[in-house]
Amino acid sequence: MAEPTSDERAEPHATPGSPASSGAPEPAAPRPRAPLPAAAALTPRLLRGEVAMVLLLSLAAAAVSAVISFVGSITAPESLAEQTASLVGSRAEAERPWLDLARQLAAVVFALAPVALVVHLLHRGAETAGTIGFDLRRPGRDLLGGAALAALIGCGGLVVYLVSWRLGLTVTVAPSALNEHWWTLPVLVLQAVKNGVLEEVIVVGYLMLRLDQLGWSPVRAAVAGSLLRATYHLYQGVGMFFGNLVMGLVFCWFYRRHGRVMPLVVAHSLIDIVAFVGSVYLIGRVDWLPGS
Score class of each variant (00 low, 15 high):
149 L>E: 06
217 S>G: 15
147 A>L: 10
219 V>P: 12
208 M>Y: 13
149 L>A: 05
178 L>G: 00
103 R>D: 09
121 L>S: 06
184 T>C: 00
144 L>C: 13
147 A>T: 14
185 L>P: 03
144 L>W: 13
111 A>M: 06
220 R>L: 13
125 G>Q: 02
153 I>P: 03
203 V>N: 15
211 L>R: 14
171 V>Q: 13
190 L>V: 00
183 W>N: 00
97 P>M: 08
222 A>P: 09
192 A>G: 01
160 V>R: 06
207 L>M: 15
131 T>A: 03
135 D>C: 05
199 E>R: 03
121 L>F: 06
142 D>C: 04
126 A>H: 14
164 S>W: 06
105 L>H: 01
135 D>V: 04
107 A>I: 08
106 A>E: 08
155 C>H: 10
109 V>Y: 00
183 W>M: 00
148 A>K: 11
195 N>Y: 03
191 Q>H: 14
195 N>L: 07
202 I>G: 10
174 A>H: 13
166 R>E: 14
162 L>G: 07
108 V>M: 02
143 L>I: 05
173 V>G: 02
221 A>Q: 11
199 E>T: 02
95 E>V: 14
97 P>D: 09
146 G>T: 02
115 V>Y: 00
169 L>R: 07
108 V>N: 03
126 A>S: 15
120 H>I: 08
119 V>G: 03
185 L>K: 04
131 T>W: 05
208 M>F: 12
213 Q>Y: 10
194 K>V: 08
203 V>T: 15
192 A>V: 00
181 H>A: 10
138 R>N: 12
156 G>P: 07
133 G>T: 04
98 W>S: 15
201 V>S: 02
179 N>Y: 12
115 V>D: 00
185 L>I: 14
163 V>S: 11
174 A>K: 10
171 V>F: 08
193 V>M: 01
183 W>A: 00
163 V>L: 14
165 W>L: 04
222 A>M: 05
175 P>S: 01
103 R>N: 11
172 T>H: 04
209 L>P: 04
209 L>K: 04
156 G>M: 05
130 G>W: 03
112 L>K: 02
136 L>F: 14
